[in-house]
Design a protein around this nucleic acid. Structure first.
Lengths: 175, 175
DNA sequence: AAAAGTATTGAACACTCGTTCAATGTGCAT
DNA sequence: ATGCACATTGAACGAGTGTTCAATACTTTT
C-alpha cells in the first residue's frame, strides 16, 4: 500500500513488493496466486477501513455518532497524503479494471448505507429514502474534500465543507 | 487520451499509442522525445480544456456566465465516463510524479482564479478574498461531483450538488 | 532533374515485468 | 534421528517495455 500510494500502480511490481517486505521474489507468489489477487487484497483492506468510519458506536448518542463520522473525514489520520493518494490510485485502478470496479462499488454502497443508517438514527422522523438522499449528498462533498485535499487547497475551505455536510445531515425535517 | 481513460496509464505504451493512431512505432518517438513528453502534452491539453469552463463570455450577463459555468460541470459532454476517467487517471498520475503534479497544480490554480473572477463579476460588492473563498468551496463540491459520478451515484444527488454550488455562488453578500 | 529536407517505417537493443519451479531451509510430530 | 509439511529462496523463461537508428518514402526547393 505504501508503494501504491507513493508511486502509483506502475510502482507496484512483484519485485518491489518483495523488496519492501524484505523478502524474496518467490515468496510473494507463494502467498498470492496472482498480482491481481494481491491488489484485490489491498483493495479490500482499504475498503474495510473506510467502513469503520460509519460504524455504529452504541456508547454515544446518535447525534454524536453522526457528527463524529462526519468530522473524522477531515481528521488528521485520514487527511494524510498517504491515505488520500492510496484512495485515488485505487479509484483509478477500479476505472481501468472491471474486477476491481465491482469490489469498489460494493464497498461504496455499504459506506452509503452505513452513513444513511447514522442519519436515520439521529433523525428518526425522516423516512429512509430521505436518509439515503442526505447520505448521497454528503458523500459527494466528502469525496470532494478528499480529492481537493490532495490538490493542496487551503484547510479553511475543507473545514467549511465539513460544516456543510453537518448542515445537510442535521437539517430539520420539514413536514 | 482514449487509451488513458479506458485502460489507465499501464495501458498507454508507445506501441499502443502508435497502433491507436494508425502509425508506426518509431513515429511516436519522432514527434515526442520521451514518453513523459507525450503524457505532459496530453495533460496540458486536458487542463486547457478545463480552463475554458470558466472562461469569460462577454455576450452574456455576469450572472448567466457564472450560472452556465456551474451547470456545465454536470453537462452531458463533461459527465461522460471517458472524460471523468481521464481526469481521474491524470490526478493519479500527478500523485505519482512530481513533474505532472506541478502542471496539474498550476492548472488547478488558474481554474480557481477563473471561477473566482466569474463570482466577482456577478457579485461586485463582494471583496476578492470572499470570491476566492466561494470559488474554493464550489470546487470542492465540483470535484466531488466528478468523482461520485464515476462511482455511479444517482443523477439526482448530482443535480442537488450542482444546485448547492449555485447557492454558494449567488449567496447574498452580508454586511 | 537533382538535391535537400522532412516523414515514416520496423528491426534491434537492453531492460523490466509476472510467473514458474527445483532446490533449500525451518519447525515439529513421531 | 527420521520424516513430513510448510516456508523461503533465487534463477530461469517468455512476453512486453522505452528508446535508438539505419533505411526508405514523400515534399519541397533549387
Amino acid at each position: 500500500m505504501d508503494l501504491l500510494s507513493r508511486h502509483g500502480i506502475s510502482g507496484v511490481s512483484m519485485r518491489s513488493v518483495a523488496r519492501e517486505a524484505g523478502v524474496a521474489l518467490g515468496l510473494v507468489n507463494y502467498y498470492y496466486d496472482d498480482k491481481t489477487t494481491l491488489i484485490r487484497a489491498a483493495l479490500r483492506r482499504v475498503d474495510e477501513h473506510d467502513l469503520l468510519l460509519v460504524a455504529p458506536d452504541p456508547s454515544l448518542t446518535p447525534e454524536e455518532q453522526l457528527r463524529n463520522a462526519l468530522r473524522r473525514v477531515a481528521g488528521k489520520d485520514l487527511l494524510t497524503t498517504r491515505y488520500l493518494s492510496l484512495r485515488l490510485h485505487l479509484w483509478a485502478l477500479a476505472q481501468a479494471d472491471e474486477d476491481y470496479a465491482q469490489i469498489n462499488a460494493a464497498a461504496f454502497d455499504r459506506y452509503l448505507d452505513g452513513l444513511a443508517a447514522l442519519v436515520s438514527k439521529a433523525r428518526p422522523e425522516l423516512p429512509w429514502e430521505g436518509c439515503r438522499e442526505r447520505a448521497a449528498d454528503i458523500v459527494v462533498i466528502q469525496n470532494g474534500v478528499w480529492l481537493t485535499a490532495l490538490l493542496g487547497v487551503d484547510t479553511a475551505s475543507i473545514q467549511r465543507s465539513i460544516a456543510r455536510t453537518e448542515q445537510i445531515a442535521f437539517a430539520p425535517v420539514q413536514e
